[in-house]
């Protein structure tokens, strides 16, 4: 490791020193290309983020790729219906590693206002690993930019070797996830237990009173 002070001193003299890790992370975090797809109203905010007022191009993410083969980042922007979920998972599988997922808005996180609908998936994290969640309905462009900068920070902190190395450098970690099938009553399976486990919640038993009085 180069000493930070020495590095600064050298850069003043016109000598640029770095490590392979820093260079590698800098390259990836500065050219995150999102996949060009939106599912609902959150996509409108995502589009607004890319345009001149919020200008996502400042962070190297102006190139929305229309093909998953060229994309690094999937912004799940909007309600994921059960009919759409297999396609979303398939698009994710088609993206090359390293790849990241931002779950944008209440619907992509949990189903949002449509959570109890028979046709809405209760969060895309049931099938694919999600790196960042942005709450909001829809989140403002600032929130998406914040998530984006947070993702860049995380990439900059990644270590290329060791136990904490990212998934794409670990041959044992999967890069593709099973695509759910259309079943007779629901998607099969209803979630991927390797990716998602239901968090333990304490449901109050007092609320079962049918009369509505407590």
């Amino acid at each position: 490791m180069v000493d930070e002070k020495l590095k600064n001193e050298l850069s003043k003299q016109g000598i640029f020193t770095t490590t392979l890790e820093q260079l590698y992370n800098w390259g990836r975090s500065s050219s995150l290309w999102p996949l060009n797809f939106g599912l609902a109203c959150c996509a409108i905010e995502m589009i607004a983020t890319t345009m001149a007022r919020y200008d996502m191009a400042r962070f190297g993410a102006e190139v929305f790729r229309p093909s998953p083969r060229q994309a690094d980042l999937m912004i799940v922007a909007g309600t994921v219906t059960k009919k759409m979920a297999p396609q979303v998972v398939r698009l994710y599988n088609q993206m090359p590693e390293p790849k990241y997922v931002i779950s944008m808005g209440a619907c992509a996180i949990s189903g949002g206002p449509f959570k109890q609908g028979y046709n809405v998936l209760k969060g895309i994290d049931r099938y694919i690993p999600v790196d960042l969640y942005i709450p909001g309905c829809p989140p403002r462009p600032e929130a998406l930019l914040d998530a984006f900068m947070e993702l860049q920070k995380r990439i900059d902190r990644q270590q290329l070797t060791g136990a904490n190395r990212p998934r794409h450098l670990n041959a044992d970690e999967p890069s593709e996830f099973p695509v759910p099938r259309f079943g007779a009553h629901d998607l099969e399976p209803a979630n991927n237990p390797n990716v998602w486990k239901a968090p333990l919640v304490q449901i109050s038993q007092t609320g079962t009173d049918e009369s509505g009085s407590h």
């Binding site: 059960k82 009919k83 046709n119 259309f182 079943g183 007779a184 009553h185």
Partner: peptide, 9 residues
Amino acid sequence: LLMWDEFQD
């Protein structure tokens, strides 16, 4: 129209 073809309900 809205649900998938395999859906039965």
